[in-house]
Design a binder for these strands. Sequence first.
DNA 1: TTGTATGCGTTATCAA
DNA 2: TTGATAACGCATACAA
Lengths: 337, 337
Amino acid sequence: MPNDRMNFARHRRVTMEDVGRMAGVSQVTVSRALSDPSKVSPKTLEKIREAIEVTGFVRNAVAGALASRKSRLVSALVPSITNVVYSSMIRALSERLRTHGYQILLSETGFSQADEEEAILAHLSRQPDAIILTGIHHSMQARRRLLGAGIPVLELWDTTDTPIDLCVGFDHAGAARAAAGFALERGYRKAATVTASDERARRRRAAFADRFAAGAVPDFDVCGPASIVAGREGLARLLDSHDLAGGIVYCSSDIIAHGVLIEAQSRGIAVPGDLAVMGFGDQDFARHLEPSLTSVRIDLEHLGQTAANTILDRIEGRNIAAPVTALNFEIIDRASV
Amino acid sequence: MPNDRMNFARHRRVTMEDVGRMAGVSQVTVSRALSDPSKVSPKTLEKIREAIEVTGFVRNAVAGALASRKSRLVSALVPSITNVVYSSMIRALSERLRTHGYQILLSETGFSQADEEEAILAHLSRQPDAIILTGIHHSMQARRRLLGAGIPVLELWDTTDTPIDLCVGFDHAGAARAAAGFALERGYRKAATVTASDERARRRRAAFADRFAAGAVPDFDVCGPASIVAGREGLARLLDSHDLAGGIVYCSSDIIAHGVLIEAQSRGIAVPGDLAVMGFGDQDFARHLEPSLTSVRIDLEHLGQTAANTILDRIEGRNIAAPVTALNFEIIDRASV
DNA sequence: TTGTATGCGTTATCAA
DNA sequence: TTGATAACGCATACAA
């Protein structure tokens, strides 16, 4: 296809005006036919349908949004789109919202507040009908802008008593304490942790250590996102300086636990005989590892759906029972502990 | 925060008009100050900056898009947003586009053409400046709409001689043939495959089998997306009916290969002693498995960046050297073969 | 350097 | 059931 075949600059869009002309009605009638067909007679409806078919008309949602002050766009900001924890939530969320005619404008914020501020501004300029943020820590500037936008704001993944507006998440510290309690109950008295560079992960690690042995738990911070190699290195470094025999390693995510498992295997350390391993998140693969991984189950689908429902309730003016929803977690007892 | 505190319905937006009034200039001058500050005197620039600060003005990109007929929005459709293969490409793509002021409107199409058609329509209604699709198989209806939109269209991930407009991808069949050649060179004469339900994956599997032994290669189709459990089951089922000793298993993705590795380990099958395993994609974790996984490297970052550059060239009216770009792949020789 | 007038393609409000 | 008219908030062309 030659380059000059497409001339994008001078492209005449088909408008409702055009459709109306062809169908012998006014532009307004076309608009009505699309948004509320019951207000248009069957005969003209058919003529309009035909004209749309022939012209290949596609409604201009930009003009519609400007006129109605409703964009049917919900923006969502996540730290990372390649992290399946976030993308699973977003998938559930967007699927639910799509059935109600909303599209998602998704951006990655990295883990920095400056990036988030910039992303928030870019998103707000698109006039979304609501905005979803990951986590509960946002700069004052960001909060001000969010409040100023006058749209529903939902903080996802975490919980707080002082949400900007709405909040759907779970109690990270509580989940980690539960994990520690589980380990203690199983008789473990020695523990170590491998933690990714994520504020929530660090908070969980702190809660785990606190509950387990008032903080006397060595930690390896992977200084980066969770990965298998991070888990392998974590265990390797911990073993350099500590005797973990008969203990348990609590990991900030299943993927890190997976790395720990691989490192243990390559060193001939029996799991759970010599060392127990616990993950977090209970991703699909956790139950299919060898040994299968004990983990803390978070229902990401449910989180995403609940967030979508909450947002929809707000947008469509229904009453919100409580602005903050804390979802449950569950310890999944498998072979690695 | 009580429910009635936020009244979203009656919210007065701050406009350029307001900013101008406060700064003692007209709306147009505010517009200019934002889009081309060099055309406004430093003194008024400062007054406008201040007024923006005070009012918390956020520019309305919807109105801007309507007026200028440029949305600075690029839409992207991928089969799955939780699949790291696609999300990695999109991350690279959107990062590059963002530096040029473009945002990405991302949607999941599932693997069905009907879903894709619907998604295309929804996206086109937002008046994107370009649209990116995954793969090269699209319904006639979809192609018609795309052409009718009069914007650049880029097909990503695959290659073809007959693109709708632009295309950036790699030769799937060629990559699979190279993998088969590699296995043959290593002396393997027996092979089996485990394949995910993805059109490209099936095409690669066919090319592998064809090159390896003119098709005499047993296959397990996992009937679903790639996952560790799919790989485990794949190997298990293949072993039920075939003697694979001394052979090689070619998997449609690293994640499936990972499952095959785990199943082999749990059965006491030595890799590569009793059975060799080969993945596809060379994801991060491939080198850190035990044994490390031989795979076919696809540079997803590069794919995403190249797509972004191609789109930018088109949008900004530069000449495109060739509408189709085929990127390279590379066999990564590790311990599992 | 700044301002006026006009249009972008819809929806909302009336009136017929 | 239909249509005329006026927003919506900004960018562009042109004038001053």
